[in-house]
């Protein structure tokens, strides 16, 4: 009883989502850049082309924000984009998880992909 009361009364720290990082301590800004690989540019293109079919930027963001923090930090920008696109397509029923699983196996077995 006493414990419950204490929990309700104080020590309430509202959760902060991992992506919502404004003001958090972080290291020095290093002006790093890289030339985008062709596949990264294609991920960008796929997302933009699907926006014409009604996918919204907020769905993409939601699915990026849902990534586990350690993955969010480890993944590259377009890794996050393509992972989020896959989730969105599944959520919208445009493709199924099974479609993606089968196709990934097929492409991997092929080893090389035509562009």
């Amino acid at each position: 009883m006493g414990r419950l009361k204490r929990k309700r009364a104080g020590g309430f720290a509202p959760p902060r989502m991992h992506h919502d990082m404004g003001g958090q301590p972080a290291g020095k800004v290093t002006p790093k850049e890289h030339a985008y690989a062709d596949w990264e540019m294609r991920v960008d293109a796929l997302v933009m082309l699907m926006r014409r079919h009604g996918l919204t930027v907020d769905e993409s963001r939601k699915n990026i924000e849902a990534l586990p923090p350690e993955q969010y930090d480890r993944m590259g920008y377009y890794d996050r984009w393509v992972a989020s696109l896959a989730q969105t397509l599944i959520q919208r029923g445009i493709v199924t998880t099974e479609d993606i699983a089968r196709k990934m196996q097929e492409v991997q077995a092929r080893g090389r992909a035509k562009v």
């Binding site: 919204t56 907020d58 769905e59 963001r61 939601k62 959520q91």
Partner: peptide, 8 residues
């Protein structure tokens, strides 16, 4: 509203 757009 982006909060709604995100939920399709």
């Amino acid at each position: 509203n982006p909060e709604e757009l995100a939920q399709m």
